[in-house]
Design a binder for these strands. Structure first.
Lengths: 204, 204
DNA sequence: GTCTATAGTCTGATAGAC
DNA sequence: GTCTATCAGACTATAGAC
């Protein structure tokens, strides 16, 4: 959101190391469950040194949320008004699922934040997120009204894509316990493609 | 899972009060974020009195998880082999969504547990949950092979139902922020019905 | 059965030497 | 910039009076 202050090379590097360690620990244990001790250990730095680079535990968390949201919303931003509607939405689904596969820790960090009532992310949800979703929902609504895709509820279609793709990151433990299988993602992609093809099929 | 020991009326009542308070606090703040002080305050009891009824904070959490899982899996258990396949699955979807609406705290408590890697629920996932899902997935597979519903991946169909319905409880804050709307559930039910009708439509 | 008081531990953050 | 040492507060759990 705001630009970071200018940094030396070593500062930039240590900030990055701390954020990586913070991502690891916050994602696995939630904000409250994460301790500075553990983040410091994971980063290979001392606890006071952490607090030399970030003023507080919360500052690390906020920095992570900010850096995360750009990555997270990129696939939705990429939804192209000029593209072929079904291809665009299916590509969005696949990109979002790929995010869950490649970045499960980011997904869980975000899920933790929302689950706790979004104490730190609320303003971003109310403004940037709502604005982006409204814009893309309007686009999907136009596609639907033009009969290029089946009748859909645009907002809830987007929620469905979020829910279905993030499930494979956030509930990974449960999915693997039930399947007893190493990598659920190949079948997940085939199934999600099948689902959204069915619901997006144009009328007639 | 195990039977509770015999209790006087006042013991049963206080245990219930503590579990209700624990549900409230654990769901909102996660295991680590919940404190005995807060649970005690919410229950209207003193902190040592809490620990008279339960030996530890963890014991309260485990008791909640156990009591929760029966409720949680009831809709899936109710899937009837003798029923009309599409009606059965659609009814399951609606019941599960109704669970999210009526019991969001239970949903969030469970989501927290899974997100943290299911440290306390893992054995139940590996055994009871896997067994139940495998059994119901086999039923759905038979329906699909008989051509009574469209071709589906039974396990991932069940994951989809979980993901889509729990999203409205667990990500409630985000859903409401984006919609700026009081009650998303009416539209959610219409949309989920539409989605699953599309994907379950028999071939030809 | 319920309370007050408190033991013992952990945690976020700071002080100050180098 | 990084460290050791340490503080103040919060936390789970226990002891013991009533």
């Amino acid at each position: 959101m705001t630009d970071a202050p200018p940094q030396t090379r070593i500062q930039a590097r240590n900030r990055a190391i701390i954020l990586e360690a913070g991502l690891e620990v916050f994602a696995a244990r939630g904000f409250r469950g994460a301790t500075l001790d553990r983040i410091a250990q994971s980063a290979g730095l001392s606890k006071p040194n952490l607090l030399y680079y970030f003023p507080s535990k919360e500052a690390i968390h906020v920095a992570l949320l900010e850096q995360l949201l750009d990555l997270w919303l990129a696939p939705l931003r990429a939804l192209d008004p000029e593209g072929e509607p079904r291809q665009e939405i299916l590509r969005y689904v696949r990109r979002k699922l790929e995010m869950s596969r490649a970045h499960p820790r980011e997904s869980r960090l975000f899920a933790n934040e929302i689950l706790q009532g979004a104490p730190r992310a609320r303003p971003v949800l109310d403004r940037e997120l709502k604005q982006l979703v409204d814009e893309k929902a309007a686009l999907i609504a136009r596609w639907s009204e033009a009969g290029r895709i089946g009748p859909v509820d645009p907002h809830h279609l987007i929620f469905s894509i979020w829910a279905l793709t993030q499930h494979y990151a956030d509930f990974d433990v449960q999915v693997r316990a039930v399947l007893g299988e190493a990598d659920p993602f190949a079948r997940a992609e085939a199934w999600l493609t099948r689902m959204f093809e069915a619901v997006l099929a144009p009328p007639g």
